[in-house]
């Protein structure tokens, strides 16, 4: 009984907001003005939920860092941690395949192992020593979030590309002490006015 989980983990997966696709280097792919507005709306939404967030973990890519910078302003005192594990990539060859997106095979080996490691590292039931329910935010990327959702629900991971996520949207997973997983929301962006919703 000493090694049984007792607490529930709430995982909030946030897709970064709209960014400038023209830059060739990651550092040049910064948020657009609309992207900054979206991040403000996402931060405001998270703050309005009235829960005490334990931490923000974010991808080390520029668009995730900038989204986190803005969200953080709405959640004062919440620590943030950067990780390379959550960087965008090609998690697994999608089924059915798509014609306009064909990464090299080696990309799936590199990114797939890393994104699977991100899933195992961050998505699990609470440790036995965790006494209270936790609320954690992960600011990352569409492919990473879609793969994590498939894996957490034990759905075939190659189906990840059948889902679509808006910029700044909130995906909420609940992991019970029993290990049961519930997807409470997938890509919620209903808190944004329709003319500010994008999927770039």
């Amino acid at each position: 009984d000493n090694f049984k989980a007792r607490a529930t983990r709430h995982i909030f997966l946030i897709r970064h907001s709209q960014y400038n696709l023209d830059g060739s280097l990651d550092k040049d792919r910064t948020l657009t003005e609309l992207g900054r507005e979206q991040a403000e709306l996402t931060g405001g939404r998270l703050a309005s939920l009235g829960v005490k967030f334990d931490k923000i973990v974010h991808s080390s890519m520029t668009r995730a860092i900038e989204t986190t910078d803005i969200i953080s302003k709405h959640l004062p005192g919440v620590n943030r941690v950067s990780t390379d594990l959550l960087r965008e990539g090609a998690p697994i060859e999608p089924d059915p395949p798509v014609s306009d997106w064909k990464p090299e095979a080696r990309q799936y080996y590199e990114d797939g192992a890393r994104i699977e490691a991100a899933f195992r590292n961050f998505i699990h039931r609470a440790d036995a020593k965790q006494e209270e329910d936790s609320y954690e935010i992960f600011v990352c990327h569409a492919n990473v979030i879609r793969y994590i959702v498939c894996r957490a629900l034990q759905f075939p991971p190659e189906g990840w590309l059948r889902m679509s996520l808006n910029n700044g949207s909130i995906t909420h997973l609940v992991i019970r002490p029993s290990g049961r997983v519930a997807l409470r929301t997938l890509g919620d962006s209903g808190f944004m006015p329709p003319d500010k919703i994008t999927r770039t």
Binding site: L85, I92, E116, A117, R120, N121, I123, H124, R125, C150, R151, Q154, F155, P156, P157, E158, S178, G179, R180
Partner: peptide
């Protein structure tokens, strides 16, 4: 191919492999 896809819920899904 990672993960079970049999449709049967694996209640020890996060205990079978090291975390990273």
């Amino acid at each position: 191919r990672p993960g079970p896809t049999s449709g049967v819920w694996d209640s020890n899904w996060d205990k079978r492999e090291p975390r990273s």
